[in-house]
Design a protein around this nucleic acid. Structure first.
Lengths: 191, 191
DNA sequence: AGGCCCATGTAATCTGTTACATGATTCC
DNA sequence: GGAATCATGTAACAGATTACATGGGCCT
């Protein structure tokens, strides 16, 4: 039941519509949780019904009306309660790791292809997160920002996301290089 | 539908019972996929029904009989097919990141507690994975093993797991230190 | 005597994904 | 003219978790 809390956490930094929220939880940009729009609309309905968030209708011209949601006092209390209990351990569940696990029994070509694709994706996320962090800290150095800044939470989660994607990128590149070297039956140092 | 492939990949390195498989997919040790025993028993039934694995009954004394499963030729072909399509992007879904995301609006005490717990968990996994890698490469250096060893797949996925847990550990420690410093309203360099 | 290891499952529930549905506006 | 953006949902299905169920052997 942590999607609720992820939504609450995302709404702490300001009112959002379901649509905007969905953008933030999208695969390509999510840095602390991922979810589909359908899941978010459903969760918003439940959260409002339970009084943890409050929504207000915003009438718009030239585009559909929207509902903006903010966290209520009970919502914040629920987050506080959530943080007072141990977090479930996170775990790995990645198609690409499954594919590499079977590497010794499969043709290397497609696998190298998969690793290259993932490396590209990771590279894009690294660039995105670096830019995001730069924006958040403004003119300040990281040290200065982290010591005295307000709203360091999103910065910290984004940092973790960056490190994760850097790890992905590094591993994909090195693994692809290794498989290429082994496939050519030779020495990775050779041309 | 990737649990099937994770099970197939796990069975490539030798016959396993559902019970042993469940141990390998356990939270505390899994390095490329996680799943509950119930899920695995169900999946094994389906995989056998579909002819992708074959099981044989092993009668035991002093303990319950068991079924050992191995991958069949169609099973291997299915893995090959799986690897010929792009892997779904992996994503983050972690309670702890949700809690840190909300850090600016919550009491720091419990959060530091959560980060410390997770750091301990990560430390244990780092030690476990390091030991596992050492065992897999035997006497050889990593370079030598990766170039010429057989079964590098499990080694590579374990390497990724190790890097991930090191990243976790590092981030948890630095984040906890930062929150502690901010909570005491002071300079992190001070005693 | 109590608890853990081996070994396998069923059933109920919760969570997450995919497909379908609508409709105006703005950008290329 | 076609695609993308804004904006919100319903319905069906697949995947994952939790609770329940059983039972002997081994260790302290």
């Amino acid at each position: 039941m942590a999607l609720r809390h992820a939504v609450l956490a995302a709404l702490l930094d300001g009112e959002l519509s379901g649509y905007r929220l969905a953008k933030a939880f999208d695969l390509g940009v999510a840095n602390f949780w991922h979810a589909q729009p359908q899941q978010l609309y459903a969760e918003l309905t439940r959260l409002e019904r339970d009084g943890l968030i409050a929504g207000r209708e915003v009438v718009q011209e030239n585009r559909p009306n929207k509902r903006l949601f903010r966290v209520t006092a009970p919502g914040l209390a629920e987050l506080e309660r959530f943080t007072s209990a141990p977090a479930k351990p996170s775990f790995i569940r990645d198609d690409l790791l499954v594919q590499v696990q079977a590497a010794d029994h499969l043709a290397p070509g497609p696998l190298i292809q998969r690793l290259t694709e993932r490396a590209g994706f990771a590279r894009a996320k690294v660039a995105l997160f670096e830019e995001l962090l730069r924006t958040m800290r403004g003119g300040r150095t990281e040290e200065e920002f982290l010591r005295h800044g307000t709203r360091v939470g999103p910065y910290l989660t984004c940092s973790r996301g960056l490190a994760f994607e850097r790890g992905n990128l590094d591993w994909c590149e090195r693994t692809a290089a290794l498989l290429r070297a082994r496939a050519s039956g030779g020495d990775p140092e050779a041309p």
